[in-house]
Computed example of a mutant assay.
Amino acid sequence: MKQGLEPAARFAADLAAVWPEDERSGSLGLAVSGGPDSLALLLLAHAAMPGRIAVASIDHGLRPEAAGEVALVERVSGERGIPFTPITVKVAPGNVQARAREARYAALAQWARAQGLGAVATAHHADDQAETLLMRLNRGSGLAGLAGVRSRSTIEDSETILLRPLLGWRRVELAEVVAAAGITPAYDPSNANADFDRVRIRQALAEADWLDPVQLAASAANLAEGWQALSWYAELDWHEMVMRDPDAHGGLGFTYCANVPRVIAIETLLRIIGELGGHATRGEAARAWERLWAGENASLGGVLAVPSVERVEKVGVAMRVWRFRPEPPRSAGH
């Protein structure tokens, strides 16, 4: 093992970095699939903090083998006296991987609330992070995407803390932890299916021995810090440069004094659209910014934005001022 620490001590230090002892108000919930990575998470957490963990395993109803994998996790948990909860979810139609992820995290948040857990941890590791970074680089992702999976965040639409304490660990190190415990993990065949972008990236990464997944993961962490700084500035921009601007009929609108770099303005645009009940992607907001910056009206997410240049009293200079209103309903026949 790296860093000269026993695995349990190393894990405890990594966990403390993302979830300090003085912030812990309940047990740590673990999402465990039965694969080698998540079983290693279970074993490491049990060794580092016995009696303060709980395990959930999710059957998405997509593969007949899943029930057996849940049973494996139940057995491993039961042998160690770890509270275990099996969860079955229904995956909505559409992009199977994306819908399965949404269903999984929603179920984990509900489980955490019901059990009074302090946080939930998943087994994402350095190789996962490296794959994610390379995939998103290949897609031309912006800073938000290049930041990869975060070591600490919250599950969407909940207050549940989500931790990924294994981002400094290699896949092979986690497999060694499971092998040392004499456990035979389950293997999901989709992890070898080259129809998936991630699998092709994984195979290419394995052949490129000059690429270091741990350093790629560190780069993603650095990008995440940059994204955190940008988000802080976008919050400031929202409070300082966006004003509620009701129309003559009392309808909600916003006026935005746009004077920040494009990447920050895009975040502010997205927030305005959301406040007005719409939804847009960052790509759509970027295209709207380009139109507005050029002095042209823009429409996105059911919101109409109209640009002008005005003297703004609070700053004492002329600047771009963009006004946002819900788009009027289309007339019949159009």
Results as ranks from 00 to 15, higher is better:
Val55Met: 05
Arg80Met: 11
Val91Tyr: 09
Gly51Glu: 07
Glu79Asn: 09
Glu102Leu: 13
Gly94Phe: 10
Pro83Cys: 01
Leu62Tyr: 00
Pro50Met: 08
Glu69Trp: 09
Ala71Leu: 07
Leu62Cys: 03
Gly51Ile: 08
Arg75Glu: 14
Lys90Gly: 04
Ala98Arg: 07
Gly78Ser: 15
His60Gly: 07
Met49Gly: 03
His60Asn: 09
Pro50Val: 08
Ile82Trp: 06
Val70Pro: 05
Asp59Pro: 03
His46Tyr: 01
Ala100Ile: 10
Arg52Gly: 09
Gly94Arg: 07
Asp59Gln: 04
Pro93Ala: 09
Val73Ser: 00
Ile58Thr: 06
Val89Thr: 09
Val91Ala: 09
Ala92Thr: 10
Ala47Ile: 05
Val73Trp: 00
Ala92Ile: 13
Phe84Thr: 01
Gly61Trp: 05
Gln110Ala: 15
Gly94Leu: 09
Ala66Pro: 00
His60Cys: 09
Leu72Arg: 11
Arg75Asn: 08
Arg113Tyr: 14
Ala98Asp: 07
Val91Glu: 08
Val73Tyr: 00
Ala109His: 14
Gly81Cys: 02
Pro50Gln: 08
Pro93Leu: 10
Ala107Lys: 14
Glu69Pro: 03
Gly68Asn: 02
Ala45Trp: 01
Ala66Ile: 03
Pro86Arg: 05
Leu108Thr: 15
His60Ser: 10
Ala109Val: 14
Ala71Glu: 11
Ile58Gly: 05
Val70Ile: 07
Ala67Leu: 06
Ala92Cys: 12
Ala107Arg: 14
Glu69His: 05
Val91Ser: 10
Gly81Asp: 01
Asp59Asn: 06
Val73Gly: 00
Arg75Ser: 11
Glu74Asn: 06
Ala56Ser: 02
Arg52Lys: 13
Thr85Cys: 03
Ala103Arg: 15
Ser57Phe: 02
Ala109Glu: 14
Phe84Cys: 00
Gly68His: 01
Pro86Asp: 08
Ile58Trp: 09
Glu65Cys: 00
Leu62Lys: 00
Glu102Trp: 12
Ala112Cys: 13
Leu108Arg: 15
Ala45Ser: 03
Leu108Val: 15
Ala71Trp: 04
Ala67Val: 09
Ala48Asp: 04
Ala47Cys: 02
Ala67Asn: 04
Lys90Ser: 11
Trp111Lys: 13
Ala106Met: 14
Val89Pro: 02
Arg75Met: 12
Thr88Asn: 05
Ala48Ser: 01
Val89Arg: 06
Val89Phe: 10
Ala106Tyr: 14
Ala67Asp: 04
Arg99His: 11
Pro86Ala: 09
Pro64Glu: 12
Ile58Ser: 07
Ala67Ser: 05
Ala66Gln: 09
Pro86Thr: 06
Val70Glu: 03
Arg113Asp: 15
Glu69Leu: 04
Ala66Thr: 08
Ala45Phe: 01
Phe84Tyr: 03
Val91Asn: 07
Glu102Met: 12
Val55Ile: 04
Thr88Ala: 11
Arg75Leu: 12
Pro64Cys: 05
Ala100Gly: 10
Ile53Met: 10
Ala98Ile: 10
His46Trp: 04
Gly68Val: 02
Glu65Pro: 00
Pro83Lys: 02
